[in-house]
Simulated assay, not measured.
Amino acid sequence: MSGNPPVSESEAARHTAKMMKIKAARDRMMEGKSGEKGLIIVHTGNGKGKSSSAFGMVMRCIAHEMPCAVVQFIKGAWSTGERTLLEQNFSQLCRFYAMGEGFTWETQDKARDIAAARAAWEMARTMILDERNRMVVLDEINIALRYDYLSVEEVVEFLAQEKPPMTHVVLTGRNAKPELLELADLVTEMTLVKHPFRAGVKAQAGVEF
């Protein structure tokens, strides 16, 4: 039976000294970070996990009894696990608006897509301006911005000038506009390394929806 080799006293001492230095550096860094603000957070990139990460933060808000809201710009024409969970169990803390009708290649009607995006944006504005909401997720809004169903200038101006100071806003979807990336406080790009879809595996419950 194999196992890890024993740690010598000298090795343990070197490790302790190294960790003490790292902790001291981290403590100094954290000393100047006591402020809080409502963040503009962007999840973009070709990899999976943009919406999943946003819903993870929604669950954190719920655990802290912080009211939040979700507005879906593309999804909405089909049922998802996160929507079912939130609507059936946490509706008192999370308002959920699935206002999309599917991707543009499914609707095949540009005017209809633009109208749906505008309606979702008006709901998003309402949710963000309601200061009871500590976080608002704008799921797949980057897709609507990419196809110019919404004006990125309008969205950026609203977030910069009208968003309540303590409200977090999370915007998801690939191909985030440069203007949005510039405004954001936190940007994460999901990188695609490998995906089962390319091997002929369809989207599966619990993983994709």
Rank of each mutant, 00 (worst) to 15 (best):
Ser10Met: 01
Met19Arg: 12
Val7Thr: 15
Met135Arg: 05
Val7Gly: 13
Arg112Phe: 14
Met190Ser: 07
Ser91Leu: 00
Ala54Trp: 03
Pro6Gln: 04
Pro6Cys: 05
Phe158His: 01
Thr107Met: 02
Glu140Leu: 09
Phe209Val: 12
Gly81Met: 03
Lys75Pro: 13
Leu85Gln: 09
Asn4Tyr: 14
Val193His: 11
Met59Phe: 15
Asp113Gln: 13
Glu182Lys: 15
Glu140Met: 05
Met190Gln: 05
Leu181Gly: 15
Gly102Cys: 04
Lys23Trp: 04
Ala124Phe: 02
Leu186Val: 07
Phe73Ser: 02
Ile141Asn: 05
Phe90Thr: 01
Met19Lys: 14
Gly100Arg: 04
Arg28Cys: 03
Arg134Gly: 12
Val136Tyr: 02
Ala24Thr: 11
Gly76Asp: 00
Gln72Asn: 05
Pro6Asp: 03
Val201Trp: 07
Leu183Thr: 08
Arg26Phe: 06
Leu183His: 08
Gly49Ala: 04
Gly49His: 05
Arg95Phe: 00
Ala144Ser: 13
Lys194Thr: 14
Gly3Leu: 14
Ala117Arg: 10
Ile128Leu: 03
Ser10Ile: 05
Gly206Pro: 09
Ile62Ala: 07
Lys110Glu: 15
Glu9Ile: 12
Lys194Ile: 06
Ser53Phe: 05
Leu183Lys: 07
Tyr149Leu: 10
Gly206Lys: 07
Lys48Gly: 04
His195Cys: 14
Lys177Asp: 14
Gly3Pro: 15
Ala98Gln: 11
Val152Gly: 03
Val187Trp: 06
Asp27Trp: 07
Trp105Glu: 07
Thr16Leu: 05
Lys177Pro: 15
Ile41Asn: 02
Ala12Gly: 08
Arg125Ile: 06
Val137Phe: 01
Gly35Phe: 10
Phe158Met: 01
Glu179His: 13
Val207Leu: 07
Asn133Arg: 00
Cys68Ala: 08
Lys202Ser: 13
Glu11Lys: 15
Val71Lys: 08
Cys94Met: 03
Met127Glu: 04
His195Thr: 14
Glu31Pro: 15
Lys21Thr: 08
Asp27Thr: 14
Glu189Gly: 13
Gly102Trp: 01
Ala54Gln: 01
Glu208Leu: 10
Met57Leu: 06
Arg132Phe: 06
Ala144Trp: 06
Phe96Lys: 09
Thr107Ile: 13
Leu186Gly: 08
His43Asp: 02
Leu86Arg: 01
Leu186Met: 04
Arg146Val: 11
Leu86Val: 09
Asp139Cys: 04
Arg28Lys: 13
Thr167Val: 06
Val207Tyr: 02
Arg132Pro: 09
Ser34Arg: 14
Trp105Ile: 11
Ala69Thr: 00
Arg134Asp: 08
Pro6Ser: 12
Lys18Tyr: 11
Asp130Thr: 00
Asp148Tyr: 12
Ser10Asn: 02
Gly56Leu: 00
Ala203Lys: 07
Ala199Leu: 12
Glu122His: 10
Ser79Leu: 09
Leu138Arg: 09
Leu86Lys: 01
Ala124Cys: 02
Glu140Asp: 11
Ala203Pro: 15
Gly200His: 11
Thr44Met: 05
Pro164Asp: 01
Lys177Glu: 14
Leu138Cys: 10
Ser79Thr: 13
Val42Asp: 06
Gly76Glu: 00
Asn133Ser: 02
Met19Ile: 08
Arg198Thr: 13
Ala184Asp: 05
Glu122Ile: 05
Ala144Leu: 04
Ala184Tyr: 01
Thr104Ser: 10
Val70Ser: 02
His168Trp: 04
